[in-house]
């Protein structure tokens, strides 16, 4: 490393003025009244309206339709919209969409652990419910011992 670069400059870069590494989307711009800046602000407000519209849609379905539409369909609807909202917040508000592709991948890949995490644990919960209901050892009824019922 030091064969290619003076160690001073590296030291300076990492421990000194971090602004050299500062990647802010518009780090080098100065005029907040410029068209570029205004477009960015417009985009932020647009995302706000999108998030608001999605939330209103969720609440309306939750209030009025959650018992008339099949439960699975309603849940799929809620989860899809939740992921969509999360995507907007991370990509636009957190500016992850403006970072280098390698960094985006670095941040997002570990989250795929959740796929296994969710499937495994929900399946486990479902399995326990079935055990409680059907296992001959437990009788044919659910028995739940309240924490203070044990003597």
């Amino acid at each position: 490393m030091s064969a290619h670069h003076g160690s001073d400059s590296i030291q300076h870069l990492y421990e000194g003025d971090q602004s050299k590494l500062y990647s802010g989307v518009m780090a080098h711009h100065t005029d907040i009244e410029s068209k570029e800046s205004k477009d960015q602000i417009k985009k932020i407000w647009k995302v706000f309206w999108v998030l608001l519209a999605i939330t209103v849609a969720e609440v309306v379905v939750g209030m009025f339709f959650s018992h008339s539409i099949p439960k699975g369909l309603v849940n799929f609807f809620f989860l899809a919209l939740t992921i969509l909202k999360a995507g907007y917040i991370v990509a636009i508000f957190m500016h992850l969409g403006d970072e280098f592709k390698g960094f985006i991948v670095t941040v997002l890949v570990p989250l795929f652990l959740f796929v296994w995490f969710i499937i495994a644990f929900l399946a486990d919960g479902f399995f326990w419910l079935r055990m409680n209901n059907e296992s001959p050892a437990r009788g044919d009824k659910i028995e739940v011992v309240a924490p203070h019922a044990k003597k």
């Binding site: 490393m1 670069h5 590494l21 500062y22 970072e99 280098f100 390698g102 670095t106």
Partner: peptide
């Protein structure tokens, strides 16, 4: 990746 610069162009604190 050979050093001397931030490959992701992002500061330590932000990363």
């Amino acid at each position: 990746w050979i050093g001397g610069r931030s490959p992701y162009n992002v500061s330590y604190g932000k990363m």
